[in-house]
Design a protein around this nucleic acid. Sequence first.
DNA 1: CGGATTTTACGTGACCTATG
DNA 2: CATAGGTCACGTAAAATCCG
Length: 419
Amino acid sequence: MAYAEKRGKYWRVKFKLPNGKYGSASEDDFGNRFTTEREAEQYGQALEADARRGRRVVNPRSGKLTFRAFATDWLDASDLADLSDQTYRSRVRAQLIPEWGDYELRDITLMSYRAWKKRLARAHETNYVNSLTALLRLILEDAVDDKLIDSNPVPFGRKAKRGRYVPPANLGEDEYVHADPHQILCASENARCVRDSIGYTMIMTIAYAQLRMGEVAGLLKDRVWLSDDPYGSAIRVDYQGHYLTGKGWTLHPPKYGSYRTLPLPPFLAELLRSCMDLYPDSPYMFPSITGRPLRVDDQFYGEFWNPIIAGRPAEPRRKGTRGRPALCPVPGIEGMVPHGGRHSGKVWMDEDGHPRVAVEERMGHRDRSVEGTYSHVTPEMRRRIAVSLQARYERSLGVAQTLWATPGQPDLPNIAQPA
DNA sequence: CGGATTTTACGTGACCTATG
DNA sequence: CATAGGTCACGTAAAATCCG
């Protein structure tokens, strides 16, 4: 237990450290000395409480603040979207604390940082390594601002490149896998085998409304505005849905606040209409197979997405399983992920020559370029996008019929005749 | 290019389901 | 009707996207 001692005019406190030894302090975090016994005791008790929670155990004014303590405070003080907060905490807990937790801030050096980065690079993807080093830099940058350390040991990328020639990035092939309308049709037919018309419609919605996956999961039925006017229907993107540790399934604003209204090609509006009553108890357009909100997790990919893209062999009905039919792989889009469906729709709109501002608006992007600033999107532009998407769908059906009619066509995907 | 934010994936344990 | 083995829910780690 903490106890205070009189030392000259002021008081000093002794407090117990986690290792059983006693530490002492004669001033608080702001350099104020203790004029009463009670002040000193309270400070010591606070330190002990912190220590019990694995927090700061040394006087920060001495510069002897551990990374663990500072990072914990940093996280508590940060103001981020829930999922971002969760992500940062995860990175700090999984990677930064195990490496740097016991370091005092000023002992984190450029050399030790470089060694760590090198080790990370061997074990992880560049994207992940970059996000970890960036986070360490970010946290330490605030430690500099707080005058806890003199300078940030983690260099900025662009500073590190000063005075050196860095060859430009490879301008080669676009490697992001995306699909043409016929491939999307094939994938949708596969999806129909797995999830009936709701699966078919989901794939079509991703590609033809260019929704992000979280927006698909969070699409409410009452945000699908259906009209008898062929081009009068629209999807209103007001939410995205995702899973949060502790809170479970929750609705949030779409990424970067990209609220928007998407006029629909008539075929998509009809598909959505036909799905409205499939899960009458769910407010969501695309609930999971159990009728709950769709969590886009490994089961979604393993049971639904990957099979409809890559195909799968038939599973016989046997112990513990219902059995299921084979799916044909969709040629040419190996490894495509749902986000690739969104990219696909973007590519089609670009190919069809729509104004950049109109395409960016539909994607939910902000166009801050000169063109974006001076151009404006009109209802007619939005309508033309829906018209050209409808044309693409109809053409893909024509291609499917041609393929279907060709005898001896090898590896034909599960293309059903349009009803 | 930095960094906030989203998407994709792994591991685990409780809970089902068709079979012998 | 016990049980082998699949299914589902959840917490979390890892990887990628894309705004400003």
